[in-house]
C-alpha cells in the first residue's frame, strides 16, 4: 500500500516536474542568449552587412502588412465607438479616444503580434532550417560565432524595425480612425483633429514606443532562441516556429501588463 502511494506520488512529481524543467530550460536558454547578445554589443562586435540585410528584409518588406493592419485597426476602434458616440453625441471624444488607445495600447500590441507572426516566425524557420542543413555548423567550422554573425543583427533589426513600424502604424491608424469617423460616426475631420491634438500628449506616444521596442526585443529573443535550438529536422522546425510564436505572444502580453503599470 505504502509502496503504491509512493509510486503514485513519484508519477505525479514526474508529470508536474518534466514540463517545469522543460520550461526552466527554455527560459534559461533565452537568458543565456540574452547575455551572449549583450556581450557582443558591448563593445559592438557584429556584422554590418548582415544587419543592413535584415533591416531591409524585416522592416521594408513588412510595411504593406503593417499599414493594412494599422489602417483597419484605427477603423475598428471608431466602428466600436460609433454607436455610443451617436447615442451620447460625444463626437468631441473620438479623436482623443482613438489616439489614446492606438498610441498607448492597441498600436504596439497589435503590431507587435503581427510582427511576431510575420517576422518572428520567419526568423525561427530560417534559423531552424540553417541548423538542420548544417549551415550553423558550417559557420562554426569557419570559426564564425553564429550569435555575433547571425543573431545580433537580427535582434537589433527587430527592435529598430518594430519601433519604426509602430510610428508608421500609429500615424496610419489615426488616419484610418479619422476617415472611418467621418464616414460612420459623422465626426468631421476638424472635430477629430481638435479632440486629438488637445488631449493626446507626447507621453502617450512615448509610452507606446517604449512598449514597441520591448516587444521587438521579446520577439527577437524568442524567435532566435527557438530557431537556433531546433532539433529533429523539418518536424522540429515546425515545432520551433509554433513555440516561438506562442512564447512571443505570451511575452508581449505579460510585458504589456507590467509596462502599463510601470510607465507613466
Amino acid at each position: 500500500m505504502a509502496g503504491r502511494v509512493a509510486t503514485s506520488f513519484g508519477n505525479l512529481f514526474a508529470a508536474v516536474g518534466a514540463p517545469v524543467l522543460a520550461l526552466c530550460a527554455e527560459v534559461g536558454g533565452i537568458l543565456t542568449l540574452l547575455f551572449r547578445v549583450l556581450w557582443c554589443l558591448v563593445p559592438p562586435r557584429f556584422d554590418l552587412d548582415e544587419t543592413w540585410r535584415n533591416l531591409h528584409k524585416m522592416g521594408v518588406k513588412s510595411v504593406p502588412i503593417i499599414v493594412l493592419t494599422a489602417f483597419f485597426t484605427g477603423g475598428i476602434m471608431v466602428i466600436q465607438a460609433a454607436v455610443f458616440v451617436k447615442k451620447f453625441g460625444a463626437t468631441s471624444l473620438v479623436g482623443w479616444g482613438a489616439g489614446y488607445a492606438v498610441f498607448r495600447e492597441v498600436g504596439p500590441m497589435l503590431l507587435g503580434l503581427m510582427f511576431s507572426g510575420r517576422v518572428g516566425s520567419n526568423n525561427t524557420a530560417e534559423l531552424g532550417t540553417m541548423v538542420v542543413t548544417e549551415q550553423i555548423d558550417g559557420l562554426r567550422a569557419l570559426s564564425i560565432d553564429p550569435v555575433r554573425y547571425l543573431l545580433v543583427p537580427r535582434v537589433l533589426s527587430m527592435i529598430v524595425m518594430l519601433f519604426l513600424l509602430t510610428i508608421l502604424g500609429d500615424v496610419v491608424a489615426i488616419l484610418g480612425a479619422a476617415l472611418f469617423g467621418t464616414v460612420l460616426a459623422d465626426v468631421s475631420l476638424a472635430s477629430f483633429w481638435v479632440s486629438f491634438s488637445q488631449n493626446v500628449h507626447v507621453a502617450d506616444v512615448v509610452h507606446g514606443l517604449i512598449k514597441a521596442a520591448v516587444f521587438g526585443f521579446i520577439v527577437a529573443l524568442t524567435s532566435c532562441h527557438f530557431g537556433i535550438t531546433v532539433k529533429g529536422g523539418a518536424v522540429g522546425v515546425g515545432r520551433a516556429v509554433n513555440n516561438a510564436v506562442v512564447a512571443a505572444a505570451l511575452g508581449i502580453v505579460l510585458s504589456d501588463y507590467l509596462l502599463t503599470y510601470a510607465l507613466p
Binding site: T129, M130, T133, E134, Q135, D137, G138, L139, A141
Partner: peptide, 8 residues
C-alpha cells in the same frame, strides 16, 4: 558537410 551547408 553532408547537407552541403551552403548559406542560402
Amino acid at each position: 558537410f553532408q547537407n552541403n551547408a551552403l548559406f542560402d
